[in-house]
Design a protein around this nucleic acid. Structure first.
Lengths: 256, 256
DNA sequence: ATAGGCTATGACGTTGGGTGAGGGTCAAGT
DNA sequence: ACTTGACCCTCACCCAACGTCATAGCCTAT
């Protein structure tokens, strides 16, 4: 009987490109146990181990977890095709999500870099808002907020061109009024949700506002008296209604 | 002097959509420390904390690590635009990689599902290979390898149509010979690397073979006498040359 | 015999929290 | 005043997939 070829950890590591530690770990979790152990506990792998390792590496390459891999390899009844298909779906979702993230980043960059030709001052910026509230807000900001953050947000906001801002402001008013006019509908109705989408887009003129943040904003509409007052003044119940609609919208967006 | 609004952990959690534990954690790592602590160690957040949390959530949404986020928020000199740009690059790389993974999965599915009309038998499959070696290989497989795995790989290989296999076999020969004819070039030269790319594609007709696995295969060409003999017979030094070229190719592919 | 290169196990670190355990606090209702 | 229930605190261990020592044993060559 011929001697089987034996491979030490180091040899297997060099062959496969993974580390010795990884081999130890795979052994430990029962994913790849060496065919043999010397009396001094040295691990020795044979060709069938190498074959299995190739398969492990294949699944690892595809971002399967080690446990999934073990299930696939150890269970002969495991539906390989089905596993690949669901895995494909997961990958597609990730793909989509990353795509969205890139778009969000792009929007952020655009907003920061574009429209720098004509900076705004505070008066322009808050034009149309209740003056007393603005003063109070500014005072609070000056007194309480970290100077760094104030400078930063002022920088960002100050970089919008005046013209852009005016039309933007109009848009916001139109959207808000349209929402108020549709308060008889369900918050989840297509009409309202479409308007909320516009509202979200409008908000993003000021700062980048991913779904999660938008949800938080919606909740602030009812929790924060300043906001509540602003919207209640337009129409009673509008603050609550907007909150509800925004949260619904954000949750849907987050589900993907 | 007016009392500042205070928010308990629970309130902040509900407002922001993250868990209380996460807030504890953010406190612990110094990412978001509450404005105030009661004498009983209760955390109380104020509006500026909420503002910071919104920013944190924004960066989290974009898959920044918490440490990166902290750096961005705490360092006023931090180049925000630059950070976004590099982050965009990272996202693009991930995007690309996931795309590749999806393609690999698709290839695997295609290979498993397609071409089932005409299955091959062993003779067809190994046609053109040295018969003695085949017998030995089969014996070894039968004796030593896990029946599960044997069944699986046989299933996979058996599903290629005969016609497909014939042309595939020709392709493989052409590529191998072309590589042998270019052994005077560097393994890293464009010519050789292009051929290796063909070779990789050819290999993938038999089994899905991501870069890491391809590298392993390349190393097997010099470590495993069966392989070495096969290639040395075509041209002395070819085994080593192919190994070198394949490893170089795989390493480049792995770098992305 | 000694140096070097290999091997083993064990334990702790990483990220971003989850999930309790065990105990203190607060506000409302009775 | 007391109880109840909801809230708060701080440990402290858990996940994946290893990396990184530390400490000690093994093997081989000169």
């Amino acid at each position: 009987m011929a001697m089987r070829k034996k491979y030490s950890v180091n040899q297997v590591a060099r062959l496969s490109g993974i580390t010795v530690r990884a081999l130890h770990y795979y052994d430990q979790i029962g994913l790849l146990k060496p065919a043999m152990r010397s009396e001094k506990k040295y691990r020795y792998y044979d060709e069938s181990d190498l074959l299995r390792l190739q398969q492990i590496l294949f699944y690892r390459e595809l971002d399967f977890s080690l446990e999934q891999t073990r299930n696939i390899l150890d269970d002969s009844d495991f539906d390989f095709v089905e596993a690949l298909k669901t895995h494909r779906q997961t990958l597609m979702q990730k793909h989509k999500r990353i795509n969205q993230l890139i778009q969000t980043v792009d929007q952020a960059l655009e907003k920061i870099q574009g429209d720098q030709n004509m900076a705004l001052n505070d008066k322009d910026l808050y034009q149309g808002f209740d003056q007393e509230k603005i003063d109070r807000w500014n005072r609070e900001v000056d007194e309480k907020y970290d100077p760094k953050k104030v400078a930063e947000s002022r920088r960002n906001v100050g970089k919008m061109s005046k013209e852009h801002f005016n039309t933007v402001q109009e848009q916001g008013e139109r959207v808000t009024i349209a929402i108020a006019e549709n308060m008889d509908q369900e918050a989840s109705s297509p009409v309202v949700q479409a308007l909320i989408k516009d509202h979200h887009a409008w908000i993003e003129n000021f700062y980048v506002c991913p779904a999660m943040m938008y949800k938080g904003l919606g909740q602030m509409y009812v929790e924060n008296p300043e906001f509540t007052a602003f919207y209640e003044k337009i129409k009673p119940g509008l603050a609550t209604f907007m909150c509800e609609s925004m949260v619904y919208y954000a949750d849907n967006a987050l589900k993907d």
